[in-house]
Design a protein around this nucleic acid. Structure first.
Lengths: 226, 226
DNA sequence: ATTACCAAGATTGGATCCAATATTCAATAT
DNA sequence: ATATTGAATATTGGATCCAATCTTGGTAAT
């Protein structure tokens, strides 16, 4: 027997489905800071009991996307300007390191894929796509480093700030600048200059941080909808 | 009435108590890589139902301390030499950055506390205490940075490798070396030299990494009990 | 009017029960 | 003897129910 079995249905638990949906809704900004997440409401929404909802919520809490208080329920976790700034610094440090480790190992396939994602990013005009496209691009640039732990942590950090990143891209020239920077990072990778790629990656993220902080300063207290 | 009620018992959920206990048992090496964690067994151990056990397990899974497979249960997550090495690199990068940010802001109280923990560490001869003492020392050195996100991530990374760290300290001169390095880091902090403190911190962690890798190479396949 | 208090409803945490899947092991066929 | 099958058991995932706590709204005392 040479065939390999492939499960058709029931491959994922209800908890995982709910987790993925909630995570997406949060990082896309469909749910806002402080929005309550009632177990019962979500359960009826997914036609399940509250049990898998609770599992999804504890996972999200561990990832810092929701905050729960005993007997008081869960809300979408907010992010102060200071926290956001810290996470951008964090990403800057880590992603610089990871891309530097990646460049010497990068295959032409990865470079090709990165270029494609770069193009996709420029072609897209749907803000909700940007997050996913950005992730794919970065993943193509980073994965050959083989630093799986680093990548997981970076991914988690990105989850926390993706909403704010979108706000930054929506600003005047935000998207153009991001595209130019992506191309610059890519070309540094293609020429095999690890240090340059790292530096440009750090600058890219630091730039995003500062534009975002300016944005938050201007709209201070206005509880801006993104 | 001016007093604020403070619950004596019941302040923490059953899930949290179970989570803390399991986490401690794992990072102390009381439970070993691959050991199965049966929901029923743990539930009877804590005189609860399986519900809070499941919450504890999903939290631990999110932190990478256990691995769960659908319908197959959870086991204590193992760590290959490569993964361990990567996490040490990760810590080296982050902790260097954090201590550098901390030094210029460090209060004399923190320095004093750090020196005390350093002393405690030297006085202790109980391997099971080392983890906690090490954490306290590092926390005293890092906290004034105010980089709470970084600190949380570092703490999590430490959870993953603490067992292996103990193995490294138990080696000949391992403890003496660690103590000397701690003192060197502390003195760099006291003299306000952020760059030096960062460099020594990175070296401290890199050193630990290499001793550990040598150790794992030597005992390859012997499934060593720590 | 303001504050303290108490009861009713809402919501979460945990227990118990049932369903779905995996594992074990004896029985059978080769 | 070895491999295969299938029933019995073990274990997890999810549903339902109960208990503990919070929240809200109204009432009474000052």
């Amino acid at each position: 027997m040479k065939l390999r079995a492939v499960d058709i249905g029931k491959t994922t638990s209800a908890a995982s489905i709910i987790f993925d949906s909630l995570r997406q809704a949060i990082i896309e900004g469909e749910l806002n800071d402080g929005d309550p997440l009632r177990q019962d409401e979500i359960a009826t929404l997914f036609n399940t009991s509250r049990i898998p909802v609770r599992e999804a919520l504890t996972r999200l809490e561990q990832q810092g996307l929701v905050e729960s208080r005993r007997y008081r329920g869960s809300v979408v976790a907010g992010l102060s300007a200071e926290e956001a700034a810290e996470i951008f610094d964090f990403r800057s440090l880590l992603e610089g390191e990871v891309i530097a480790a990646s460049v010497p190992k990068m295959t032409s396939a990865s470079l090709l894929e990165a270029r494609q994602h770069c193009q996709d990013f420029m072609d897209s005009d749907d803000p909700l796509e940007w997050g996913e496209l950005n992730r794919r691009l970065h993943y193509a640039l980073y994965r050959d480093s083989g630093l799986t732990y680093h990548l997981k942590v970076i991914d988690n950090a990105l989850d926390r700030v993706e909403r704010y990143l979108r706000a930054q891209l929506l600003m005047t020239d935000g998207l153009d600048l991001a595209n130019r920077e992506h191309l610059a990072i890519l070309s540094a990778c293609e020429s095999g200059d690890a240090a340059l790629a790292a530096e440009r990656t750090r600058q890219h993220i630091q730039g995003a941080k500062h534009t975002l902080i300016d944005f938050l300063e201007k709209n201070k207290g206005q509880q801006s909808r993104i």
